[in-house]
């Protein structure tokens, strides 16, 4: 059964080291001013780390197809939360909204 897939210790150690290296890069980038790129780099690294954890440590890569579907579904829900909330923040200037009583 796929859920009993055994991941070698070597893989775990390799992923752990990768996570540590990515953490070090995150810290290092914090000391360099890249302007708006700072956020993009940091979020990119965070997404890469989360992907490694979900796929390898949480065994999603080795499961039946239903499990990745459910995992993807939960991220899609997160996207709904962020996406629609941000759609409020980005549009507050429209039609004079966000400036109470039209001032």
């Amino acid at each position: 059964m796929s859920s009993l897939h055994v991941v070698s210790v070597k893989t775990y150690v390799a992923i752990f080291l990768a996570l540590m290296v990515l953490t070090a890069i995150t810290v290092a980038v914090a000391f360099v001013d890249l302007g708006p790129l700072n956020n993009i780099v940091m979020l990119g690294i965070a997404i890469a780390k989360a992907t490694l954890v979900v796929l390898i440590f949480m065994h999603v890569r080795y499961s039946t197809r239903l499990i990745p579907l459910i995992a993807a579904g939960s991220f899609f829900w997160l996207l709904i939360l962020f996406g629609i909330t941000i759609s409020d923040y980005l549009t507050r200037g429209w039609l004079g909204a966000g400036t109470p009583w039209g001032h």
Binding site: I84, D88, W94
Partner: peptide, 21 residues
């Protein structure tokens, strides 16, 4: 049910666009 929460924020300075949606 997950796409409608902003109807609680119609008078909470939410944007008109978001309120309409």
């Amino acid at each position: 049910g997950f796409l409608v929460w902003g109807h609680h924020l119609f008078v909470s300075s939410q944007s008109v666009y978001a309120g309409t949606v």
